[in-house]
Design a protein around this nucleic acid. Structure first.
Length: 319
DNA sequence: CGAGTTTGACCCGCGC
DNA sequence: GCGCGGGTCAAACTCG
């Protein structure tokens, strides 16, 4: 946990990636190729997911139409394992009980089954736990929450975003001297996770990946629904709350607000400036264009404005 | 003492 | 099938 002063100091450093070291030192492809795969940015990308994405996660962002074509890259999760409907998927709070009906139900059944089996051998508690874990994993693995990643130039790894996080893991990242930290929202029944890692191409850049949606208001942001309006963009408050992008809070609102005024929040800027949330077709084509260019993997990053903060790296490529 | 962090071990998916 | 890497768990530890 960083003190306010530390945060403040760090935030002074905060300078959304655009026009900064990343594009000067490396392309996004370089970047994503180093411990931050494209799918990690937005990896809910199957055709089916695209629909869900557009109806759920991106709906939260106020974006619908542009998502499908945008996020069909690098999809790795089998379609059949994903949420069965938007209502069961991204639209619902990412709680263990509701993240996926199919998952939750099957999980419960399997858990029960496993328990019955293992009760025969009481000494096998550990094994039992592992079994349950295994079952859980096999069922949970399939469903992936939509992820949202953005990069921030900051000296501190863990950016304050209004939510409380508990670190549950840290892993060394291949090809990177910087470890990746795993955080979970401390609120019970809220299984939002985030990963924080530092770009090794530019150690001053922190890559934060959010996964899931908060099922509760920010403990440090008593009226989260005001955030959306404050941002003055197409982004919904739900999206802001869901992905808890570092933004203004009561305790640090002034600075954050200034950040937003000067740089604008990545969400705010990119979304509003791109007609996010208005189902505008224009954004679709432009993003599509970017994405195509990106997937071609040829171009260098240019200044997209703040889009670079929230748009997956593969979308940030530009001719 | 509770909440959060650290860290080694484990599991799983994926690529070869 | 095997090895690697990502993601998670959970015991031990730290801190307030």
């Amino acid at each position: 946990m960083h003190t306010f002063m530390e945060r403040k100091e760090a935030l002074k450093m905060e300078d959304y990636v655009m026009g900064n070291s990343i594009n000067s030192n490396s392309s996004f492809c370089d970047y994503t190729g180093n411990g931050f795969p494209l799918q990690s940015v937005f990896d809910s990308c199957s055709e089916e997911d695209n629909n869900k994405f557009s109806l759920g996660f991106m709906e939260l962002l106020g974006v619908q139409d542009f998502t499908c074509p945008l996020f069909d890259v690098a999809q790795q999760v089998p379609v059949s394992t994903k949420m069965e409907s938007p209502e069961q998927g991204f639209n619902l709070p990412a709680t263990p009980n509701s993240s996926s009906v199919s998952s939750a139900s099957s999980e419960a059944v399997n858990d029960e089954h496993v328990k019955v089996e293992d009760d025969q051998d009481e000494e096998d508690d550990q094994q039992k736990n592992k079994k349950q874990l295994k079952v859980k994993k096999t069922n949970q693995k399939r469903q992936r929450e939509p992820r949202f990643a953005f990069m921030t130039k900051s000296e501190v790894d863990h950016l304050e975003d209004g939510y409380r996080w508990r670190k549950y893991g840290q892993k060394a990242v291949k090809n990177s001297p910087f470890p990746r930290s795993y955080y979970r929202c401390t609120s019970t029944s809220c299984n939002v996770k985030k990963r924080v890692e530092r770009s090794f191409t530019d150690p001053s850049i922190v890559v934060t990946t959010y996964e899931g949606q908060h099922t509760h208001p920010s403990p440090l942001m008593p009226r989260p629904n005001l955030v959306g309006s404050t941002i003055n963009s197409g982004i919904s408050a739900g999206a802001a709350a869901a992905f808890s992008v570092p933004m203004q809070r009561n305790t640090q609102s002034h600075y954050y607000y200034q950040q937003q005024q000067q740089h604008q929040h990545p969400f705010a800027n990119s979304l509003s400036s791109s007609n996010f949330g208005h189902n505008g077709p224009s954004i679709d084509s432009s993003f599509l264009h970017e994405r195509r260019l990106c997937t071609s993997g040829q171009s260098l990053l240019k200044d997209h404005g703040l889009l670079q903060d929230i748009i997956p790296s593969h979308m940030l490529k530009e001719e």
